[in-house]
């Protein structure tokens, strides 16, 4: 076992062997989830609190199910509608919850770095479920698991990440993870949606889908994050779709066996054509959702092991 971290705040601080450890365990949980007896006891006796300061259906459901399948007591709090509205600070909210002795906190927050800040103030394991435009580590891990199961490896692949990179925490975590596992990453999108310094991240940048998709093994589409834009990033959705939306014609430039991914929720007809999204020979979008539960089970299991080890050492 090589997973050493106390929290899962981002891919940035994970070593390749830690990533592999999570994915290996997640593979086991995929089998468990496909069986009729979908129960483990890795988190039995532990309390998991999901704090979502930003609305989420999919990720929250995935974390909730992952915790329940491993026997944790799970509570989900819709923070967007609660005490922050009454003026309570993030730290105070964290301290309040900390006093209830949770073991795992799953946190999503609209500000980059907010989950790091919270992790400094609590005594339990913290999982970042997405902070602003910073990181979304479990999404990158589930994408990696999906790719590894389809392609048999994570190294020496060419992955095109297309669309709204600027506002995407999914893109940042994936860039870090794929780079660490020695795959090539290309970013494709209009210059307004790709940070101009992205070339210094060790990736290729192109503003043309044909060049970007040429001979790639994986096409990862990003959601156009209309809610994070304060106007003026693209002229219109139809021009965006024409130039950067994934359709059969653009996909033809990728390798024949290239897979298509999307973190969801999709804007059909904006960044991806509906028939591509539904094409079971190319699209692995449904698998991604399935892998999400398994990866979150694995991540929480490993964090819980470290937490238990730390506590017994302290006792």
């Amino acid at each position: 076992m090589t997973f050493r971290a106390r929290h899962l705040l981002g891919i940035e601080h994970l070593a390749p062997d830690e990533i592999t450890a999570i994915l290996d365990l997640a593979d086991d949980y995929v089998s468990l989830n496909r069986s009729t007896q979908k129960h483990g006891d890795a988190l039995a006796g532990l309390t998991q609190i999901n704090m979502f300061f930003e609305n989420s259906t999919r990720t929250q459901a995935s974390f909730e199910l992952a915790g329940k399948r491993l026997g944790a007591d799970v509570m989900s709090m819709a923070m967007a509608a609660s005490s922050i509205k009454k003026g309570e600070t993030l730290i105070d909210t964290a301290l309040t919850l900390n006093a209830m002795h949770p073991d795992i906190l799953v946190v999503r927050h609209p500000n980059s770095g907010a989950v790091n800040l919270l992790a400094e103030k609590v005594a339990c394991a913290v999982l970042n479920a997405g902070d602003g435009r910073h990181e979304h580590p479990t999404q990158a891990l589930l994408d990696a698991l999906t790719i590894r199961r389809k392609k048999g490896r994570l190294h020496r692949l060419t992955v095109a990440i297309c669309g709204d990179v600027a506002h995407s925490r999914v893109a940042r975590s994936n860039i870090l993870l794929l780079g660490r596992m020695e795959s090539r990453v290309r970013l494709v999108g209009p210059p307004t949606l790709i940070p101009s310094q992205a070339r210094d991240w060790g990736v290729e940048v192109t503003h043309d889908m044909e060049t970007g998709l040429k001979d790639c093994d994986v096409v990862m589409m990003l959601r156009l994050q209309k809610e994070r834009m304060d106007g003026g990033f693209i002229p219109s959705e139809r021009e965006y779709y024409h130039r950067f939306g994934l359709d059969a014609e653009k996909l033809a430039h990728a390798r024949e066996d290239a897979i298509v991914m999307h973190p969801g929720p999709m804007n059909r007809g904006v960044e991806i054509d509906g028939t591509i999204a539904d094409d079971i020979n190319r699209s692995v979008i449904q698998e991604q959702v399935e892998m999400g539960v398994a990866v979150r089970m694995a991540a929480m299991d490993l964090l819980a092991r470290n937490l238990r080890a730390e506590r017994s050492a302290a006792a």
């Binding site: 940035e12 910073h134 990181e135 310094q197």
Partner: peptide
Amino acid sequence: AFAALRGL
């Protein structure tokens, strides 16, 4: 590149 990676 540093601040862009941190999503600031």
